[in-house]
């Protein structure tokens, strides 16, 4: 796989290349450069820290979309054992942009599901770039109801630009599929933990985004509209996407501050893609901790708290009538 790097990652990549060259040189020439290596490594982590302390919201969006970022099935593989993938919505198709099945997380049975992007042209065609059709949302609901039937907690992983906007999706009513999921997720009497692992794109994300805990990986975003879409409408030009990204307050920190997510899961310095194993280990621990807490809550309390959690979201004023 080609090594992609984002514009703001370039200084890091250059230093890392230099480090490798120096190592190769020292091996080939049998010259001790350990002092220089230490110096260079220090410089790399300093540069990383500098860059990652000053990321703009638009940089965060780029990281969330990084082509090497771990995807849903990467996390399933790294965190779970005994994963049995389940297919199809029993009505129309098996949407490969939405994957899921039973798995064990530290031996705990869970239903784990999420949107799935592809890594290359071929898999992206199959996965529709992680943008699900109505059948994807209906498949997700089928699996979640199955989980509830067997008292199995649900973990959803979200990484999608949104539900796919296409003629077929409209003919099969993607809006209705998402709406039904929202309604039904409030009625499933098992713990649901939602994690935004990359892109949290609007209704397509929310369609599997109702739960008792909402986690977000540090360099993910979650937004009502894509920055490009927002820029096209409000600035009449998609080129203003970075301004729109700032205005939308879509970063993990902004969302945490607004009380719209419960937890930010820290990423390795440099982003999840620089150390997917460490990322998966961190996420696994966070999921297990939350799972343990939620499993101790009686089902009726769980459902009431889930309702209250979303019930409290919104900011408005009360004004004197006629004023």
């Amino acid at each position: 796989m080609a090594n992609h790097s984002l514009a703001f990652e370039k200084p890091i990549v250059e230093l890392e290349n230099k480090l490798q060259e120096l190592r190769a040189f020292s091996e080939a020439q049998n010259i001790d450069v350990s002092a220089e290596l230490v110096e260079l490594e220090k410089k790399i982590s300093e540069t990383k820290r500098n860059i990652f302390q000053n990321l703009t919201p638009w940089d965060e969006v780029q990281l969330a979309r990084h082509p090497q970022r771990p995807y849903t099935l990467d996390y399933v593989e790294a965190m779970c054992t005994d994963f049995i993938e389940l297919h199809g919505d029993r009505h129309y198709a098996d949407d490969q942009a939405m994957v899921g099945g039973f798995a064990r997380l530290d031996n705990e049975p869970v239903m784990i599901l999420g949107t799935q992007k592809g890594r290359d042209v071929k898999s992206n065609v199959a996965r529709n770039f992680g943008m699900a059709y109505p059948e994807g949302y209906r498949k997700a609901l089928r699996l979640m109801k199955l989980a509830a039937k067997h008292a199995c907690p649900i973990l959803t992983l979200i990484d999608t630009a949104g539900a796919f906007p296409g003629i077929g999706g409209e003919e099969r009513h993607v809006a209705e599929a998402i709406a039904v999921n929202l309604r039904e997720l409030f009625l499933l009497p098992v713990p649901i933990i939602v994690t935004i692992i990359g892109e949290g794109g609007s209704g397509g994300a929310l369609g599997i985004g109702v739960g008792d805990r909402i986690l977000i990986l540090e360099h993910s975003y979650y937004s009502v509209i894509s920055p490009e879409g927002c820029a096209a409408i409000l600035w009449k030009d998609r080129a203003f996407a970075s301004q729109a990204a700032t205005a939308l307050k879509l970063t993990s920190k902004d969302l945490f501050k607004a009380g719209l997510v419960d937890e930010i899961v820290p990423e390795p310095l440099g982003g999840a893609h620089t150390d997917p194993k460490a990322m998966a280990a961190t996420l696994k621990q966070r999921l297990l901790t939350n799972l343990r807490e939620l499993k101790a809550v009686p089902a009726d309390v769980l459902l009431r708290q889930r309702y209250d959690k979303f019930r409290a979201m919104g900011v408005f004023e009360t004004e004197a009538v006629g004023g």
Partner: peptide, 23 residues
């Protein structure tokens, strides 16, 4: 649709209203 000026707050109204419909 959703009111983008309110960012994710507006998206969450979809969940909130659907919860009320459910009850």
């Amino acid at each position: 649709g959703a009111r983008m000026y309110e960012g994710l707050f507006s998206l969450m109204q979809m969940a909130k209203t659907s919860a009320a419909v459910a009850r």
